[in-house]
Design a protein around this nucleic acid. Sequence first.
DNA 1: GCAGGATGTCTAGCGTTGCTAGGATGTGGC
DNA 2: GCCACATCCTAGCAACGCTAGACATCCTGC
Lengths: 191, 191
Amino acid sequence: MSAISERRERERAQRHQLIITAARELAEAEGWEAVTTRRLAERVEYSQPVLYSHFDGKDAIMRAVALEGFAELADRLRRARLASTEPSRALHAVGRAYLDFASEQPALYQAMFVLPTDVKFAHAETPASLRAGFDEFVSCFEADNPRRELFAEVTWSALHGIAALAKSGRIPPSGQEERLDLIVTRIAGTP
Amino acid sequence: MSAISERRERERAQRHQLIITAARELAEAEGWEAVTTRRLAERVEYSQPVLYSHFDGKDAIMRAVALEGFAELADRLRRARLASTEPSRALHAVGRAYLDFASEQPALYQAMFVLPTDVKFAHAETPASLRAGFDEFVSCFEADNPRRELFAEVTWSALHGIAALAKSGRIPPSGQEERLDLIVTRIAGTP
DNA sequence: GCAGGATGTCTAGCGTTGCTAGGATGTGGC
DNA sequence: GCCACATCCTAGCAACGCTAGACATCCTGC
């Protein structure tokens, strides 16, 4: 109520964000398997139990990181789509932005789309930013296409496939551009 | 050298396979996170250190399970391709066989294509069965298509994308058939 | 100004993980 | 029959996620 408790709440929110950022940086630097509650606590210069006063556990921290990623991804996809001069190239631009995001921040991408999660996808409780990111793909298809949601879903899935396989070393990371071209031209039907 | 040591070697090989099978069954029943060295040892009715006399650690066991999966998958894909009467439907048949494999044995699929691995893909040391599985996709495209390897790679990646996202609950598992249709018709170009 | 209560943080510890050292057991060869 | 060797198990290590309970600190009301 008082100014004091307001200040405390503010500090608490800052620390909350500090934990998320630290977890994200640590994961990006050394992978999620290196993100232990002990190391994370040391990094934010608090003891372990403090983490549990902010989050329900390690999974909840990863969830918070993923949510941050959804918002950033949606923003990048949106800007890529709007920046593409001709609409026929929009899907290509969005696809490249998606792949860039995945390769530039592999740990973040992993938390969002690979690791087990309880975030709801395609559901009433789906985070708005996640839905917004998906809608960027949908917007790349003609509004009168009754199957545009399906097209968007499959395009996204295909991009996820090459992103995931490239990250884990199962396909050479060098050919992503060629694969993107093929996916876009074949699925969007714009040769 | 003697018959006795031969028998011992035979028993050892049996136990080796027993460990792999037990790990696979346990993973399929309760997920890989439930496959601990203790539980696995209990299941094969030996003590923990015995596992380490056969494998270099838990990762090596998962690797052995994955290798078994590669052979089985290649076999299923091959039979699906050969069973399809018209060549134009071959890719569809192989794709469905791939998705069936992934959904019927999710833990096995995960060890093969999702979890971190040091198995070499698209490399000189690539296991023959893995290469054989990939070649089934390649064979679905015309031999005179100079980009058939790329087409196969992208088709496989797209199928992996929908398989992985469906398994982790990120797309509804119910629409796989529709997605398969779209991938095959758009990429193979056979409407 | 000072006691009382609430809030916040830490130390210490529990059960489990992957993995390993060293001792006990039992078999094979001379 | 005895020694040497191979095999296997008990016991333990460090690190993991997570939590209970003690300690300190700060705000409130008299």
